[in-house]
């Protein structure tokens, strides 16, 4: 907020304004994109651990499926990260 306040005072040029907007939106985009996958992966791994604890003989299969699930869930967060890079650096 303070940075933004300063920015309004010194009457920034358009490139700086774009950079500031990009950085702010980038942070917000990544932060929002990380919420869902964070919950999802936590739930997924928790359930997998429970499954492995209940049936240790099925641990290999559960682990493979868990990694697949993590890969699919994580993709959302990673797309958020790509959006972050696009907004911040491009």
């Amino acid at each position: 907020m303070s940075i933004l306040a300063q920015a309004t005072e010194v009457a920034v040029d358009k490139a700086t304004a774009q950079a500031i907007a990009g950085a702010t939106n980038a942070g917000m985009a990544y932060g929002l994109a990380a919420i869902g996958p964070g919950i999802g992966i936590g739930y997924l791994v928790g359930q997998s651990v429970q499954a492995m604890a209940r049936q240790p003989e099925a641990a290999g299969m559960v682990r493979t499926t868990m990694f697949l699930g993590i890969a699919f869930t994580e993709a959302l967060a990673l797309i958020g990260f790509v959006v972050f890079i696009l907004l911040k650096f491009v």
């Binding site: 890969a71 699919f72 994580e74 993709a75 797309i79 990260f81 790509v82």
Partner: peptide, 13 residues
């Protein structure tokens, strides 16, 4: 797309 982005974004991050 997700196959490429997953690997790329993980490594870049």
């Amino acid at each position: 797309f997700s196959l490429a982005v997953r690997l790329f974004a993980n490594m870049l991050a």
